[in-house]
């Protein structure tokens, strides 16, 4: 067996507590795992299990209360809000259940959005947008607005937006939750294709059927993370 791929993210005993009224809720307890380059992983758990909290920490939307997070080997546990925004702009691509496109912007402008928040906008911005649109097969709809697209098309645009900054990780939160079975299958196929091209992809879902498509599964229950068997 060859040497393991370089690690992207490593969590060591990461915990997250929220004050809720008089009590404190442990949303995440001692989560430890390593995510390597090129992995195709599902985080599986029922609603309220803590999987959203885990995704927020992986996506730098939130900081952990305890424990250590390493990104590319560097400890990044406590970043300021501004620093986390920079990481999101340059290293993470998000895909959401509700697509979350900006309705007033065209498809192209939606895809371009993350680039406008880059510290130094890349010189090949236009080419990157074209590439991302071609990858999800949405070039012909570049000048439409999200309202004129079907659900599957909107999710493709959202995926293009997540890819345009060439992120280290593509994070998807229930990406097929709002789609019919056939469209959902097409989106999953797109993820598989992207992974085959080398993207590191993490999908959060409550459906074990969808999780079954992924090579690696993490189960989250009551804030505790356990490794599931490879499919």
């Amino acid at each position: 067996m060859s040497a393991p791929a370089p690690e992207v993210l490593r969590l060591e005993r990461v915990g997250k507590r929220y004050p809720m009224g008089d009590t404190v809720v442990d949303a995440l307890v001692d989560a430890s795992f390593t995510l390597r380059e090129g992995e195709f992983m599902a985080i599986l758990g029922p609603s309220g299990s803590g999987k959203s909290t885990l995704m927020h920490i992986l996506g730098f939307l939130d900081s952990p209360s305890t424990g250590q997070v390493f990104f590319d080997g560097c400890p990044v546990a406590s970043l300021s809000e501004r620093q986390r925004a920079h990481v999101r702009a340059e290293k993470i691509g998000f895909v959401f259940q509700a697509f979350n496109l900006l309705p007033r912007l065209t498809v192209r402008a939606n895809v371009a959005l993350p680039l406008s928040y880059h510290g130094s906008p890349p010189a090949d911005a236009e080419a990157r947008i074209d590439r991302a649109l071609a990858l999800v097969d949405m070039t012909h709809r570049a000048h439409h607005r999200p309202g004129e697209l079907s659900g599957g098309q909107r999710q493709r645009v959202a995926i293009a937006r997540a890819l345009v900054n060439e992120p280290r990780i593509l994070l998807a939160d229930e990406p097929t939750g709002n789609l019919d079975t056939k469209t959902a299958a097409a989106i999953l196929d797109l993820f598989k294709e992207l992974n085959r091209l080398g993207r590191t992809i993490v999908v959060v879902t409550h459906s074990s059927e969808i999780a079954g498509h992924f090579r690696r599964q993490l189960h989250v229950r009551d804030g505790r993370v356990t490794e599931g068997g490879a499919a």
Binding site: E81, A85, H86, R88, N100, L113, Y117
Partner: peptide, 16 residues
């Protein structure tokens, strides 16, 4: 609010 959330998720800083 949602638009602000989206912009922040894709990397907008508070100052942006």
């Amino acid at each position: 609010v949602r638009e602000i959330g989206i912009r922040k998720a894709v990397g907008a800083t508070p100052f942006n």
